[in-house]
Design a binder for these strands. Structure first.
Length: 325
DNA sequence: AAGGATATCAACCGCATGGTC
DNA sequence: GGACCATGCGGTTGATATCCT
């Protein structure tokens, strides 16, 4: 703020403050902000707001630009790979949303934060365990994340072009190489962070995910009849999952009579799934989960954001049984 | 169809940090 | 060195949409 501004009377200042708009942005405001930034660049947000004639705080303008108007902001549903990345990075960095967002090109910290709060924390609540508890983290690591990998792999196998897979050049079929989270990247990110002797989430170094870099092509999940309509109505992101699709969306994968045989990811041998001692312990309230089972399972194909379904209940209970917990 | 419950996400708030004068 | 300011970050809120009964 300039000297002149600093010396203004408090009466005038409060008048200005009263004049400031809040709440949702209008199209006109968006247009004004976009135009101004196109001509003058971003930064100096307070003066920008004033010079552009926007009755908004600099903070508000910055937030609007960064989270919504910026041309490279990627809107729409979080892809499977992004989900995986978020889970992984959050397990590593915690609520460092901006840091996590840096690894998800086009995604904003706000979006990731919202995703975490609405999709992930909700299920911690349903499991009656703290989102930061070991039980919940283990459930993520040893159940959801491997299954996400599996589903990404399945999707890639059905959609990745041989060229993309073979070249591994990281170019995106969507035309934006830096907006693609490759599973290859994910592997590099993670290949040293899981306990080797448990075998869990430790993926083989090559061919683990079917292709060296199938992620170079946007991975398109294989939509099921249940979610395909939503997918079709989604925006242009080929790799996106349904707005209602989430970490458990892949439960639509056909199962046989033994759910456990359907869900072991590559590089994730069945025997290795024996949870480390105390992992799936009494901290998970399965009785309560069963009571919620209607909610957890009646969604059917539209598993939306349910992280666990009846097969998972079965799976987890098997783990408890196998470990005599 | 209506009303309540729940989910989602844009936007705001307060605080911390770093730069400049 | 301290005051002030801009920016960035994480937490929270509130409006709206969607789902459920």
């Amino acid at each position: 703020m300039d000297v002149k501004g600093r010396n203004r009377s408090s009466a005038i200042q409060s008048e200005d403050e009263m004049d400031l708009r809040r709440g949702p942005w209008t199209d006109d405001e968006d247009f004004t902000l976009i135009n101004y930034i196109a001509n003058h660049g971003e930064g100096r947000w307070n003066s920008l707001a004033r010079c552009a004639g926007l009755k908004r705080t600099g903070k508000s303008c910055r937030l609007r630009w960064l989270n919504y108007l910026r041309p490279d902001v990627r809107r729409g549903n979080i892809t499977l790979e992004e989900q995986l990345m978020i889970l992984e990075l959050h397990s590593r960095w915690g609520n460092r949303w901006s840091k996590i967002a840096q690894n998800l090109p086009g995604r904003t910290d706000n979006e990731i934060k919202n995703y975490w709060r609405t999709r992930v924390q909700k299920h911690a609540k349903q499991l009656k365990c703290d989102v930061n508890s070991k039980q919940f983290k283990d459930t993520m690591r040893y159940l959801w994340m491997p299954r996400l990998v599996e589903r990404i792999q399945a999707a890639a196998g059905s959609t990745a072009t041989p060229t993309a897979a073979a070249t591994g050049n990281g170019t995106s079929s969507a035309g934006s190489s830096n907006s693609t989270i490759t599973t290859n990247n994910y592997y590099h990110l993670n290949n040293n962070n899981l306990d080797a002797h448990t075998g869990q989430m430790v993926l083989p170094p090559s061919g683990v995910l079917g292709h060296r870099d199938f992620g170079g092509a946007q991975v398109t999940p294989s939509y099921t009849p249940e979610n395909s309509s939503t997918a079709a109505s989604s925006d242009s992101y080929g790799a996106q999952i349904s707005p209602l699709s989430d970490l458990t969306d892949y439960y639509n994968i056909p199962v046989n009579n033994n759910p456990s045989q359907d869900y072991y990811p590559v590089g994730y041998p069945e025997q290795s799934l024996t949870s480390p001692p105390g992992y799936f312990n009494n901290g998970l309230d399965f009785q309560a989960m069963e009571q919620n089972n209607n909610q957890w399972t009646l969604d059917g194909g539209d598993t939306s954001d349910n992280l666990l379904n009846v097969e998972d209940m079965w799976f987890l209970q098997q783990q408890l049984h196998n470990n005599n917990i």
